[in-house]
Amino acid sequence: MSIIKSLQAEIIRVARKEIKKELEPVKRVNATQRGLIANLRRDVTDLQKEVARLQRELGKAIPEQTEEPVETKEVRITGKGILSLRKRLVLTQAEFAKLAGVSTPSVVKWEKQEGILPFRRKETADRIQTVRGMGKKEAWAELGKEK
């Protein structure tokens, strides 16, 4: 019986030694990866602090807005732009038409049209430019839509 127990003990000892030898490269890689992750976390923290600092400085540096209207450049809106804007805001053509103050068939026509869209009324182009600056929540709020 003692031979069996001593053989078992020797097998266990050799198996542990082999396992340790096989796991050594994995442990080294794991330690390296942990070091890289720690460095990345430090970098992210530093960048977040830098962004916060720049936002504070930007808030101080912005002069007060004047009431005078600023001349805007000619707006260049394409059919693809209308489609991507509508998709970004997750709106149907009818909902987009309501936001832009036009009919649904107009939106359908715009999305199919190639190149820059010619607008008959400047208000339509201005309204679409306003919609461009909206986020999804703003657009939904204006439509009275909640998700």
Rank of each mutant, 00 (worst) to 15 (best):
K145I: 12
K80V: 03
L91Y: 03
L58S: 10
T92A: 00
I128Q: 01
P105T: 05
K60G: 03
T32W: 12
I77Y: 05
E114G: 03
T32K: 13
L91N: 02
T124I: 11
K21S: 10
A15C: 06
E114T: 10
S2R: 15
K20F: 09
R13L: 07
T32S: 13
E74N: 11
G59V: 06
S106L: 08
I3E: 15
E111W: 00
E111K: 00
V108R: 08
P105G: 03
T130K: 15
E67I: 03
K60L: 06
A141D: 14
I4R: 14
E142L: 14
L36G: 03
A38H: 13
Q55F: 09
Q55V: 04
M134P: 02
E50C: 04
G79I: 01
G81P: 05
T78R: 10
L7H: 12
W110H: 00
R88D: 04
L89V: 02
E57T: 04
K20G: 07
L36H: 13
R132K: 15
A141R: 14
K80C: 02
G115Y: 10
K80S: 05
K137Q: 12
R16H: 15
R34K: 09
A97D: 01
E74P: 07
G79D: 07
K112Q: 06
Q113P: 01
Q129V: 07
R86A: 00
Q33V: 10
E146K: 13
S6L: 12
K98V: 00
I37K: 12
L23D: 15
V51S: 04
R28D: 11
D126Q: 11
G79A: 07
Q33N: 08
L143K: 07
E24D: 13
R41M: 08
